[in-house]
């Protein structure tokens, strides 16, 4: 079971959280202006990397807040967790 550090509550076991998929996929500000392909990419296309991945988590059985995390999908180690709205941490730390 993962140990996830909620930016508001600290380190808590994975069962308190719900995963929310890849992070930093912004909803287009004017969806009507977006063509079909771009909209499909927004809805369905994800990077699914082997390695460093920025993803959304919800501390659903805790503070109820959404936040972002950078996790290595190979080792499952969390590089960092950070609040919504903060930029993705420098990706130069990528490993493997």
């Amino acid at each position: 079971m993962l140990l996830i550090t909620c930016p508001y509550c600290g380190a808590r076991p994975e069962i308190e959280f719900r995963g929310g998929g890849e992070a930093h996929i912004a909803r287009p500000s004017d969806p009507a202006a977006v063509d079909d392909q771009s909209w499909a990419e927004y809805l369905y296309y994800r990077s699914n990397p082997k390695g460093v991945h920025a993803e959304r988590w919800l501390h659903v059985h805790g503070c109820g807040r959404w936040f972002n995390a950078v996790r290595n999908t190979v080792s499952d180690s969390f590089e960092q967790t950070y609040r919504m709205g903060e930029p993705r941490p420098d990706a130069t730390k990528e490993r493997r």
């Binding site: 719900r18 919800l58 659903v60 109820g64 807040r65 959404w66 919504m84």
Partner: peptide, 13 residues
């Protein structure tokens, strides 16, 4: 509730 909170916190804060 999760769905609503998601939009409220992440898209329309």
């Amino acid at each position: 509730l999760v769905h609503m909170e998601d939009y409220l916190q992440t898209e329309w804060s």
